[in-house]
Design a binder for these strands. Structure first.
Lengths: 129, 129
DNA sequence: AAAGATATACGAATCGTTTCGTAGAAGTCA
DNA sequence: TGACTTCTACGAAACGATTCGTATATCTTT
């Protein structure tokens, strides 16, 4: 339930590319860092044992698939992170993340909508749901 | 520059309480989890070696102090976290953190101000800087 | 069929973090 | 002074994560 950094890397690939073989995942990972094939293999085997990945035998190959969702995992990691790094204050995190990001107007607008959702009383009415 | 989880715990205490002895830090930590005195001692010694903490001898005691700032450290951790968990998308993180937090109206208002700052063009004018 | 490439399985080395036991120095108290 | 407590220092065990070497099986190619 709490993937390590390496495991997260692999999950990222599987989330992005869908079910994949070890080689495909490894190919992808080696683009950004030095990692041997058997290292990726071992990692994915362990993740399979842990129940993070499913595995289907396709002839000689094994095809792996993420068993936990991206958003769900992100939410979990986020909760943990807020606790450890921001002492539980999600707002502090939000402010700091936002302050240092170069958000596009579109993104800000989306965010604006979300805020209006959260706070139907206050602020100028914008659109009803 | 990249404190571990345990180190972060200790930093939190020092940030909150200011310069402290090992015992004071340990006392605080033991309130929330099982940890021996010498464990805390060793950790703080290592952090001192790493340059995370300064140390002043006060008679028989050592008084430790955080050498890195809270916000600065949080920013650093946050950047890293956005990269690894949210593939660099700070906005995705913000939206998700916000969506799951129960923010008070005051907090939302603060956030609103920040957004208006960031996006002077769009939205209703609110206040000039 | 033989050689070579490519798959999985698995044991083990390595590395960083965390934890604690033990020793010795220094202060406190009866 | 002698027993206790309370510091720091330090070595090393324990643990988890990461990495890779090697063995073996299975294809592919000539």
């Amino acid at each position: 339930m709490k993937p390590t950094e390496s495991e997260l890397e692999i999950l990222q690939v599987l989330w992005a590319k869908g079910p994949s073989t070890v080689r495909q995942v490894n190919e992808h990972l080696s683009q950004t860092r030095d990692i041997g094939y058997t290292t990726t293999l071992k990692l994915m085997q362990i993740m399979h044992e842990k129940g993070l990945l499913s595995r289907t035998e396709e002839g000689r190959y094994h095809i792996y698939q993420a068993l936990i969702g991206e958003e769900e995992t992100q939410q979990h990691l986020l909760d943990r992170f807020v606790d450890t790094a921001f002492r539980g204050s999600a707002m502090k995190l939000v402010m700091q993340a936002l302050g240092n990001s170069k958000a596009t107007p579109q993104e800000l607008e989306e965010l604006q909508k979300l805020i209006n959702h959260l706070n139907p009383e206050n602020n100028e009415p914008d659109e009803r749901l």
